Simulated scan of single mutants.
Amino acid sequence: MEKLIIATRKSKLALWQSEYIKAELNKHYPDMEVELKTFSTRADKILDVPLAKIGGKGLFTKELEIALASKEAHIAVHSLKDVPVNFEEGFALAAVTKRFDPRDAFLSEKYEGIHDLPKGAVIGTTSLRRRLELKLLRPDIVLKDLRGNINTRIAKLKDGEYDAIILAATGLQKLQIEDEVKYFKPISTDDMIPSMGQATLGIETLDNKEIIDLVSVLHDKNAHIESTIERDFVRTLEGGCQVPIGVKATILDENSIDVKAIVGMPDGSEYIQEDIVANIEDFENVGKNLAQIFIDQGAKELLARAEKVAFED
């Protein structure tokens, strides 16, 4: 193939991720031209409403899928956490890349960490999962919506709208802007379980063998195992972007994998949480089996209530 076109969003982070994929492809195919083509998604345009209320995860991917379908691009680069667990017919998740830092991060101009915040401090996040987990860590804090790209969110923090904000650590690390805030502190996944696929890149294509074979060089086996478990867990629970679900699979050694998961109400009033160790050879069933344990404890009903509350807020 002489030329490959990557569809990407225009944000600095999306462009970094697409440039990273371009560089990786150039290592394997030095004679192939790789070009980035930018698109605006609905999620980039609607910045004053929580994503859950306007459609959830597909908002970051739809316009890029249209570009693939119309042959304007060959692949699309996504943050895997934004990719719906079910693909429309004709599309495929061709590769998942080596995982970066999966943790959430605490950012503040005044306070070193989440436990240093004064009672009633204001934390910015729109993520229902983060709201749930923050309320379990600090029931006394006040949560306030936070939308916009990374730079916009940091600017709002610096303007004093929030005592602290929570972002994915990997975004700041990729853009090398951790030092723009006085306190940047990644939060242990024991304290805040990330979103499925957080810090992994997903390469989407049309279901085209030539392109899938071409990008297979980007595929990371460990990230594949972890993300399969996480995405299966969410798919089995039938949970979208608009419900509070955290799930993190971590390979411990060649035989075993640890899986932490949580679902609950955004205010932390009800939740179900599990931490299991499973056989890595059974990874294609682990996520589904863990989800069934949650379902048996009433997780679907809990998530239905959580979704209803989220849309009422």
Rank of each mutant, 00 (worst) to 15 (best):
I166F: 02
E72K: 15
K98D: 10
Q176A: 13
I114N: 00
I193A: 04
K119P: 04
G160W: 08
G202T: 03
A76G: 10
T205L: 10
H74W: 07
I165L: 06
L214A: 10
L93W: 06
L214P: 00
I203F: 09
E89T: 13
Y183N: 10
K135A: 08
E161I: 08
L214F: 15
T200M: 13
S195I: 02
I211H: 06
E133C: 06
L206H: 04
T205V: 10
V85D: 12
I212Q: 14
I212H: 02
K182T: 14
G160F: 10
I187Y: 01
E112W: 07
E178I: 11
Y183G: 05
E109Y: 03
A92Q: 11
M192H: 03
N149G: 11
H78A: 11
L107Q: 00
E89S: 12
V122H: 02
V122Y: 08
D179P: 07
I114A: 04
A76E: 10
A199L: 07
G197H: 01
R99S: 13
E72V: 02
E112R: 14
A121C: 09
S127A: 11
L206A: 06
D159T: 09
D104H: 13
N86K: 15
I154R: 03
I165V: 14
K144Y: 05
I154H: 03
R130K: 15
